[in-house]
Amino acid sequence: MEAVITLATATALLLGSPGPAPLALAATSAAFGVKPSLGFLGGILCGLAVAIVGATAGMATVLANWPELKLALQLTGGLYIAYVAYKIAMAPALSHGTASGSDTAPRPTFVDGFILNILNPKAYAAFLALFSQFLLPGDGALGSYLSTGIVCFLVAVLVDSLWLLLGGLLRRLFERPLWARCIRFGFAASMLLAVGLSLTWI
């Protein structure tokens, strides 16, 4: 149990910090509502699942040995995050009492969330670090990696859901056009800043 708690805490700290994906989740639910943003959340979580499998298969090692591939993924992921930030920033203001934005608004989708995470080399590196430092005991290597991956994924579901709900709490402010514009652009700018910082860490 102590090993599980340690792993869960480390995972929450790594995945729950305000990076591009958590900020995108909060901004999307604030702009479009929690329920319309569940597809985007699902895409992000599926992308994380791929990152978990990729980390156990040694993807992080491949990225370390081929820096040009890492840079290409980082830049492509950054462009996707910028695209998602654009969708959030350009979302229309709500009418008072409406449950969601305009049906024609460019809303981040499942595919956006999925691609955002599978193109994120830092996700593979984070899971490789977790597996190397906090691998849970199990019935053989496969059991250890499987149990560790499950715990990491469950923590990711919890953390990302909390970010989505946090954005939903800001939903009422989006009925005020000035507040809505400031929050949307603030989230979008924060996402772009996070991308810029991650590029300096390559």
Rank of each mutant, 00 (worst) to 15 (best):
F174W: 06
F134E: 08
G58C: 06
L71H: 09
G58D: 06
W201S: 12
A85F: 10
L146P: 01
L192W: 07
C46F: 14
F185K: 08
G196F: 05
L135A: 13
S100R: 13
L45T: 11
A27E: 08
A141K: 11
A123S: 14
V159R: 02
L142R: 12
P22N: 07
L178D: 10
A93K: 11
P177Q: 11
V151G: 07
A85T: 09
L94M: 10
L48Q: 12
G39A: 14
F127Y: 15
A21T: 14
D112H: 14
L7A: 08
L38T: 15
L128G: 06
L162H: 02
S198V: 14
M1Q: 09
Y86I: 10
A189Y: 05
P92K: 07
A194Y: 07
V159D: 05
L199G: 02
L164W: 01
L69S: 11
G101C: 03
I183F: 15
F131G: 06
V157D: 11
L197Q: 09
L79W: 07
T200E: 05
G77K: 03
L63M: 10
L116R: 01
I44S: 01
L199C: 13
D103W: 03
D112P: 03
D103Y: 01
F40C: 04
Y86T: 14
F114I: 08
G54R: 03
W66G: 00
A3V: 04
A55C: 02
P106D: 12
K70Q: 11
T104S: 13
L136T: 04
A30Y: 04
G77I: 00
F131H: 12
N120L: 02
M191K: 05
C182Q: 12
G140L: 06
T6D: 14
V84Q: 08
V53N: 00
P121G: 10
F110Q: 06
L94W: 15
P36V: 10
